[in-house]
Computed example of a mutant assay.
Amino acid sequence: MNAPIGEAEDGPPVVPALSVIVPTLNELTNIEPTVAELDRALRGIAWEVVFVDDDSRDGTPEAVTALALRDPRVRLLRRLGRRGLASACIDGVLATTTPAFVVMDADLQHDPDLIPLLLRALDTVDLAIGSRYVAGGDGTALGARRGVASRIATLLSRLILRQPVSDPMSGFFAMRRAQFDEVAPRLSGIGFKILLDILVSAKTPLKVAELPFRFRPRHAGDSKLSAGIAAEYLLLLVEKLCAGIVPARYLLFSAVGGIGLMVHLAVLAVAVDWRLPFALAQALATWVAMTNNFFLNNFLTYADQRRRGWNVVTGLASFYVICSIGAIANVGIANAIYTHWSVWWQAGLAGALVGSVWNYAVSAIYTWRR
């Protein structure tokens, strides 16, 4: 049995016993209400809150900073050039020294009144989860679209889970730091589902308790659910299914390359039909496919390092330049094969395959480097 979580006397705590990790991205109007609710719910517990901000542009980091100047329990960890709830949670926990931590959202859909119960559960388990799907829980505030997505994600999680957990998609849980430190080196940090990552990455199944809670309506802000987030979730599933042997990002990059190959052949077919010289047709198809691959990879494969604004232009330029060697080999080999056999699709396929490995290697190092 674990030792109980420490408590503090009334008054400002000197040494916190609990860290509340709150990832943020454009949550300006939620910062002060979140701290106020924590202050109300955690009376008698020595706590701190760490807002891990992914370079919000709405004034969120400035609001946290201003609040931290008035309340020493408030801390800010600001990340530049990085995105993703899972990696934000990992960075937030590693920036603390408390024996226990809680992860929760900044939109007040997670009720801080459950935190003392989660901490109490840690007396006998490794991980205490706020669940929407056990008896007494309620996830209707998710709405129809997010509710369906959550249920589908939960079903898919069974492909990699080694223990029955009703709500592995929950973003509201408590854990002891000692158990987290044991799991941390094996975490993928991909996407938005850090709890699932923790459950699957543990060497042996963790002792888990699930406590029911009512998922509340969003206080302010917008849902971050998107196609990119769904792709990151699938990326996490694939990496865990492969036991980390094959990097999931490489697999997704290859899938994008497969789409690019179809685009390449489609453009080449049209260009050949227009009676363009084959070398010119192959070059045109290569350029279109390369552009397609950059934007798909920027949106899906490297969603956590996505280039935005002017950086999209510079990233695309670097992608063109770096991949030019592969493109030259692509066109040269394809043209040589077409000259000998005059079968356009075979020549196009061979040329496209030549540059694929090169494109992945150099783009990972240069185009999407952190």
Rank of each mutant, 00 (worst) to 15 (best):
N2K: 13
P4L: 03
A17K: 00
L18H: 02
L28R: 06
E32F: 08
P33R: 11
V35A: 15
L38D: 04
I45D: 10
I45Y: 15
V49H: 06
V50E: 10
F51N: 05
F51D: 08
V52K: 09
R75I: 05
L76A: 11
L76R: 07
R78K: 11
L85T: 11
A88M: 11
T97D: 13
F101K: 05
R120D: 15
D123N: 12
G130R: 01
R132D: 10
A135S: 14
A144Q: 15
S150F: 08
I152E: 09
A153N: 09
T154W: 03
S157R: 05
Q163V: 10
P164T: 14
P168Q: 00
R176S: 04
S201I: 02
K203P: 14
E210N: 06
F213D: 04
R216P: 01
R216C: 03
A231N: 02
Y233D: 07
L234V: 03
L237Y: 01
L237C: 02
A243R: 07
A243M: 01
S254W: 10
A255R: 00
G257F: 01
G257C: 02
G257N: 06
G258F: 04
A266Y: 06
A269P: 02
A271Q: 02
D273H: 14
W274G: 06
R275T: 14
L276F: 12
P277S: 10
W287T: 11
T291M: 06
F295K: 00
F299C: 12
A303D: 12
W310L: 13
A317G: 12
S318R: 13
I325P: 12
G326D: 08
W344F: 12
W344I: 06
A347K: 03
A350I: 05
A350Q: 03
L353K: 03
W358G: 01
N359P: 05
A361W: 13
A364L: 07
A364H: 09
